[in-house]
Design a protein around this nucleic acid. Structure first.
Lengths: 173, 173
DNA sequence: TCAATATTAGACAGACTTGTCTAATCAAAT
DNA sequence: ATTTGATTAGACAAGTCTGTCTAATATTGA
């Protein structure tokens, strides 16, 4: 695996687990077993790494979501599968919540570049949901989708997703 | 004003603006114009201050919410007033989002005390909404309420609140 | 008045942070 | 085979962080 990718994967794991500000460069390079010089050869700053991490996470997450929906599309409608995907991700990642919103809370006014990446991700999600349901309810579904992620992280319980899924089911019928 | 309160108010302002991990004790005591010894006389640690801050914020926020709803109850139904309250808070606090969820994202596994305070606040909110609407839709409203706060923070725009309010209006009719 | 409580300024410890730099080594491509 | 690009270990700077401690001073209640 390439050094750059190893750093991004390690950062992904640590950012997701301990948060952005609580994870130091030294910890990342130590766990990735990469020299500090190589880190700054590949990234010009920690912010630069953060953006690369979010872009990686964006691709990873969306790819998994699309695959999941496509794979389970026979069982129920696509939009309901999207909620099942959230359940499976919570199981996989132990209720860590949304990588993008987790970082959003740690931003100060100067991090406008990172904020733009986060907004872009959520806009893409909003657009994706538009392709799954009729236009009249798509933002409604988007808002429930977002709540599902955050509230299940908070309570470490799947009930917000199940609840949201049931609401959406009644909406599309 | 008491030293302890001055520290909590200053911490509230700084935590809300720059986040928990990005705000240092030295910055808090400097802006509060309090000696460091007094800080550690009143709080045994930064985590201790954080809990006091969240408890203060809980009382402050809920008091404002109840007052707002009571004051505007004549104009429309109470639950819709609660969404208007969110709009007014965004204007007052410049779209800083939810103090509790902002801190949630910065927690690591050791901060279980803080997590409990956050959960308690959200459980109280969920219970409060139960008193405003019929049982069948209260979690639905709660989830939209939460989305409203986070998404308006993300997009620095009131549309998620307006959208949620309209949905709730159609639910209660 | 006197004793307990509270606050002060500031030094200090020990650990952490991001980022720079050196000097040597390795890999790959021409 | 030599040049270019990539990586290495690690020291270092300059700053931050939380928390402790001292020793003097203020405030407060009995």
């Amino acid at each position: 695996m390439k050094v750059r990718d190893k750093l991004i994967y390690t950062a992904a794991r640590l950012f997701h687990r301990h948060g952005y500000n609580s994870t130091g460069i030294n910890q990342i390079i130590e766990e990735a077993e990469i020299a500090k010089g190589s880190f700054y050869y590949n990234f010009k700053s920690k912010e630069d790494l953060c953006i690369a991490y979010l872009e990686f996470r964006h691709t990873y997450w969306f790819t998994k979501l699309r695959q999941y929906v496509k794979k389970h599309a026979g069982e129920s409608s696509e939009v309901l599968c999207a909620f099942d995907f959230l359940v499976s991700m919570n199981e996989l990642e132990n209720f860590r919540g949304c990588s993008f919103l987790n970082i959003l809370s740690e931003l100060n006014e100067n991090d406008s570049k990172i904020l733009e990446v986060i907004r872009s991700h959520k806009s893409d999600l909003r657009d994706y949901i538009k392709t799954l349901v009729s236009p009249g309810i798509s933002d409604h579904v988007y808002l429930l989708f977002e709540s599902s992620i955050i509230e299940s992280q908070l309570f470490k319980d799947q009930w917000p997703i199940i609840k949201s899924k049931n609401i959406v089911q009644s909406l599309i019928n």
